Amino acid sequence: TETRTFDSEEEAKKAQKEAEKQGRTVTITRRDDRWEVRFD
């Protein structure tokens, strides 16, 4: 599991799309003013 933090939802969604192309499961969580993206 890898976790990355982004400043914008746009960036988080971009990372999510990339990871899903690779067949990974992605979870996006809102953390205050940041977006946390978890790759499984």
Rank of each mutant, 00 (worst) to 15 (best):
K21P: 03
R38P: 02
T5A: 09
K13M: 14
V37N: 01
T29P: 01
Q16D: 02
E2R: 12
T29H: 07
T5C: 08
I28T: 03
T1G: 11
E36G: 00
T25H: 15
K17T: 12
A15I: 11
D40Q: 11
E10A: 09
S8Y: 04
E11I: 04
E20Y: 04
K13R: 12
R31W: 06
R4M: 15
D7G: 07
T1Q: 12
A19N: 05
E10V: 07
R31E: 08
K13N: 10
K13E: 10
F39S: 09
T3Q: 08
Q22H: 13
T27V: 13
R4Q: 15
A15T: 07
A15P: 00
D40S: 10
Q22E: 14
Q16S: 11
D33G: 12
E10I: 08
K13I: 15
K21S: 14
R34H: 15
E2W: 02
G23A: 04
A15E: 07
G23L: 04
E2Q: 12
R24Q: 14
K13V: 14
V37F: 00
W35G: 01
E9M: 07
V37H: 00
R34I: 12
R30P: 09
W35R: 00
S8L: 04
E9L: 13
K21H: 11
T5R: 09
I28A: 02
T3D: 07
V26W: 00
K21Y: 07
T29E: 11
E36L: 05
T27D: 05
A12T: 03
T3E: 08
D33W: 00
I28E: 02
T27F: 00
E2F: 03
T1L: 12
A15R: 04
K14N: 14
G23I: 02
A15M: 10
T25Q: 11
R24V: 12
E20N: 09
R30S: 08
K13C: 12
K17R: 13
E2L: 07
E10M: 08
R38M: 10
K21W: 06
T25F: 03
D32K: 08
E10K: 05
T29W: 00
F39T: 09
S8Q: 05
W35D: 02
F39N: 05
A19T: 03
E9F: 13
I28P: 01
F39A: 07
F6V: 06
T25D: 08
V26L: 00
R24P: 02
D33N: 10
E10F: 08
E36P: 00
R30Q: 14
A19G: 10
A12D: 00
A19R: 03
E2S: 12
E9Y: 13
T3A: 09
D32G: 15
D40V: 11
S8E: 06
R4V: 15
D32T: 05
F6R: 01
E11W: 01
D33C: 05
T25R: 12
T1K: 10
E2K: 11
T3C: 12
T25W: 02
V26P: 05
T27S: 12
R38S: 14
R30K: 15
R30N: 11
A15Q: 07
K14P: 00
E2T: 13
A12W: 01
R4A: 11
S8H: 06
R4I: 15
T1C: 08
E2D: 11
A12M: 05
A19L: 15
T3F: 09
D7Y: 09
E9D: 04
D32M: 06
T27H: 07
Q22S: 12
T3N: 09
T27E: 09
G23Q: 04
Q22D: 12
K13W: 06
W35Q: 01
Q16N: 03
R38F: 07
E20Q: 10
K17W: 11
T27M: 01
Q22C: 13
V26M: 00
E18K: 08
E2A: 11
E9V: 06
D7Q: 06
E10H: 06
D7I: 05
V37I: 08
D7E: 10
R30Y: 05
S8I: 03
A19D: 04
V37D: 02
K21D: 13
D7P: 11
R34F: 14
T25P: 07
T5L: 15
V37S: 01
E2I: 14
Q22V: 11
F39K: 03
K17E: 14
R24S: 08
T1S: 14
D7F: 09
E10R: 04
E10Q: 08
W35F: 07
R34M: 14
T5P: 04
A12L: 04
F39Y: 13
K13Y: 10
D32V: 05
I28M: 00
G23H: 06
T29A: 06
D33P: 03
K17M: 14
D33Q: 05
D40T: 10
R30W: 05
K13P: 00
Q16L: 13
S8N: 10
F6Y: 13
V26G: 11
T3P: 09
R24H: 15
T25M: 08
T1F: 15
K13L: 15
E11G: 07
T27N: 06
G23Y: 03
E9S: 03
D7H: 06
D32S: 05
T25E: 10
E18M: 10
K14T: 12
T29S: 10
F39Q: 06
K14M: 15
R38W: 05
D40A: 11
K21M: 14
R31T: 12
K14H: 14
A19P: 01
D32P: 03
Q22A: 14
T27Q: 09
Q22R: 10
A12E: 00
V37M: 03
E20C: 08
I28R: 02
G23P: 01
F6K: 02
S8T: 15
T3H: 09
Q16P: 01
K17L: 15
E20I: 11
E18P: 01
T5Q: 11
D33R: 02
R30D: 04
T3L: 14
F6M: 04
Q22T: 11
E36H: 04
R31P: 03
Q22G: 09
D32R: 03
W35Y: 06
D40W: 04
R38H: 14
E9N: 02
D33S: 05
A12K: 00
W35T: 01
S8G: 04
A19F: 13
T29K: 06
A19E: 08
D32I: 04
E10T: 04
W35P: 01
D32A: 07
A19K: 03
E36Y: 04
E2G: 10
Q16K: 13
E18A: 10
I28Y: 00
E18G: 05
R24E: 08
E36S: 00
R30G: 07
T25L: 10
F39R: 02
E2Y: 02
E20V: 09
I28S: 01
Q16T: 07
K17F: 12
T29R: 05
D40K: 05
R30I: 11
K14Q: 15
T1V: 14
E36V: 07
E36K: 00
T27P: 02
D32Y: 02
T5D: 09
T29M: 03
Q16R: 08
E20A: 11
K17Y: 13
A12I: 02
K21I: 11
W35L: 02
V37Q: 01
K17G: 10
S8M: 03
K21F: 08
E2P: 09
R30H: 12
R24A: 10
Q16Y: 09
R24K: 15
T29N: 08
K17V: 14
K17S: 13
E18W: 04
V26T: 09
R24L: 15
E36N: 01
T29G: 06
A15W: 08
R31G: 06
K13Q: 12
D40F: 05
S8P: 01
W35K: 00
R30A: 10
W35N: 01
T27G: 04
D32H: 06
V26I: 06
G23F: 03
R34Q: 14
E36R: 00
A12V: 06
T3V: 14
K17Q: 13
E36M: 03
K14A: 15
T27I: 14
V37G: 03
Q16C: 11
R24N: 09
A15Y: 14
T5W: 15
F39W: 11
A19Q: 06
T27K: 08
F6E: 02
F6H: 03
A19S: 06
T27A: 07
I28W: 00
S8V: 04
R24W: 05
E10S: 05
T27R: 08
K17D: 12
